Simulated scan of single mutants.
Amino acid sequence: MLARTVHTLPEGPEWRYEPKWDGFRAIANRENGRTVVTSRSGRRLDTRFPEIAEAVSGLLPDGTSVDGEIVRWSGEGLEFGPLQRRTRATVRRARQLATMEPCHLVVFDVLRREGADLARQGLQDRREELERMFGEVSGPVPVMLGWQTTDPEEARTWFEDLVAVGIEGLIIKDARGTYQPGCRDWMKLKHRTTTEAVVGGVGGRVTSPDSLVLGRHDPDTGELRIVGRTTELTRAERRELAGLLSEAGEEHPWPVRLPARWGDNDPAEMVRVRPELVVEVETDTETVAERWRHVVRYVRPRTELDPRDVPTGLDVES
């Protein structure tokens, strides 16, 4: 289930407010004595986060599925880098990282409990079921119950104060709402507007890109189109991206030249790369000629996502 962006906090007795955790969205499923943890796109995460899979195996009864966010808490705040390292690690290395940089699964919804389908029940009933499940947990474990409040003033305090430790904003849910996969019936109030795009080219060298040329698939034709370009990357960002990009062959759908600067008619060379890497960018919603009007700011790679997870067209929802 997904969320749509709002710019003000709705109030009323039906609303439930939760922190928007900065991590990897994940579904944990316990079935026939086996635990599987998958990403939003269906990628297996249990081998990359063995500490979470083992905790789920000991915590959830058979026939149970929960929705949550995998996060890394350093003691001072949330860290995204360790999550990225897991996606690139071998199974053996992931086990080593699990002891060095342990992660948690913050659970905020339950879809099944011991074979019973709970998705058609209202959120309030599902939350009560979750609280009963976690009420039986003793001692610290890598799986925890996410926070939720009915008080808009407490939610505003979370929004203002928790940004310092990496909370992105708030998720707002209707207590009466059922769980509908793929639907944007939840809402999100964020400190900044970010979205995802596919890297299809770079300015500079692939091994040290100056900027990224971004693409989105056309919702009608499926064609990968150029939709934007980032501002100049920092030295640290260039190092972060260098090992994630590889030069494309002649089959790439884009031309080799594009404007040197967004809105400039003087074309510059672009090195085309395989359109496989998804990155998160900060953008506004202004568009022109089927592109983002302004250059966007690169935020980070999203190696856990597949290009198919990226919104189509110029939609900023993700």
Rank of each mutant, 00 (worst) to 15 (best):
E153H: 13
A155C: 12
F159I: 05
E160I: 05
E160G: 07
D161E: 04
L162A: 12
A164N: 02
G166K: 00
I171L: 13
D174V: 00
A175H: 05
T178L: 02
Y179Q: 06
Q180A: 14
D185Y: 13
M187S: 07
L189W: 02
L189V: 05
T194E: 15
T194N: 11
V202K: 01
R205C: 04
S208G: 10
R216V: 01
H217V: 07
H217T: 05
D218E: 08
T221Q: 00
G222M: 09
L224H: 07
R225P: 03
R229G: 11
R229L: 02
T230G: 04
T230K: 14
T231G: 08
E232L: 11
E232Q: 13
L233F: 12
L233H: 10
T234R: 15
R235C: 08
A236S: 14
A236T: 12
A236V: 10
R239C: 03
A242W: 12
G243W: 13
L244N: 10
S246F: 02
S246N: 06
E247Y: 02
H252Y: 00
H252E: 01
V256S: 15
L258F: 06
A260Q: 11
A260H: 10
R261M: 05
W262L: 15
D264G: 05
D266T: 11
D266V: 09
V271G: 00
V271Y: 01
R272E: 02
V273F: 09
P275H: 07
E276T: 15
V278R: 11
V278C: 08
V279L: 11
